[in-house]
Simulated scan of single mutants.
Amino acid sequence: MSDVDTGFLRSLPKAELHLHLEGTLEPELMFQLAERNDITLPYSDVEALRDAYEFGNLQDFLDLYYQGAGVLQTEQDFYDLTWAYLERCAADGVVHVEPFFDPQTHTARSIPMSVQFRGITRALNDGQEKLGISSRLILCFLRHLSEEDAFTTLQQALPWREHFFAVGLDSGEKGNPPAKFQRVFDEVHKLGLKIVAHAGEEGPADYIWQALNLLKVQRVDHGVRCTEDPALVQRLNDTQMPLTVCPLSNTRLKVFTDMSEHNIMQLLEQGLCVTINSDDPAYFGGYLLDNYLAVRDALGMTKAQAIQLARNSFTASFLSEEEKAGHLATLDKLA
């Protein structure tokens, strides 16, 4: 039985490090943007679309995800998407975010990089000014596309270099190992950008090794299959390599059949730097607070563990050491 109540978890200062902006597109906003842009969706109403959010695997989800992203057409659309997410963060006690976005999803539809960056960064700036939520934007490559396409995307993004802090690798892992993108991430490294990568969700533990050794990541997104390899768990612990774990996403996509089987608390108790995140909350049924609550309810998360998870979220962030220290001092007062 957990000793931590919902009010405490809501007020607990938290950072979110694994969140796809396109994955925050709620059915209501999707219909609103479709109407604004004169797009006809293949669903009769919001409820019909919500019903479609019942999927059995990652590919089914991705098919719906990319279809939904088609309503994002203008700078204002990207602003509205990002702002709606930040408002939810404010309600959940989230004070820092490092969201992903997938430019290839949009450039493939002839939506210029400038439209995406202007809309997203304007909302993030407003989030800092109006909500007190700081941010570091992460540009991601789609791993089901070619490395050549990733190189092109990186070049297209360079005029906007000041607006993104890191580069990631996302989309379906199967058949797309990190090694496929080693050369482009060598280039990212030379540019002085931080590097993160999805590995060890549907892909095997070996993909985590590749992310570490070939891509030289600063964080592993997901990483829950590390337990398949004790030597890998030891490496992650020794280096305090952050894992950005997404509990509700993992259960919806059947990485674990039930939250009670999730290994996040086991990894936390082993001393690994695990964090809680929401991934694609519009599709997986919960934003950051919902994920904390789900872990509490299924795995008996204690107050001390909740504070440690929040500490990890700041320690693993790309904030400056001074900024981290301020958040950690706040958490120390709650212990």
Rank of each mutant, 00 (worst) to 15 (best):
L267W: 01
A157M: 07
A48Y: 08
D45H: 04
T244G: 10
V97K: 05
E54D: 11
A205Y: 04
I195L: 09
L272C: 07
G168K: 11
V295H: 00
K14Q: 02
C226S: 04
V196S: 14
L268N: 04
V95D: 09
V188P: 04
L319A: 08
F256C: 05
H163N: 15
T24D: 08
F284P: 13
L142E: 14
Q67F: 15
L124V: 13
S2G: 03
Q308F: 02
G203S: 14
E87M: 02
R136V: 11
L49V: 11
Q67S: 04
N125W: 15
G175Q: 06
D60M: 15
W83I: 06
K130N: 12
G285Y: 11
D280Q: 05
M301I: 01
A294W: 05
E28F: 04
N176D: 06
H189S: 06
D3N: 08
F55D: 05
F55T: 03
L81K: 07
D258A: 10
T82L: 09
D3I: 02
E269L: 04
E322L: 06
T153D: 02
L253I: 08
L288F: 07
K303G: 03
V184T: 06
I111P: 02
L145T: 10
G175H: 05
G7K: 08
E47Q: 15
L9C: 07
L288E: 07
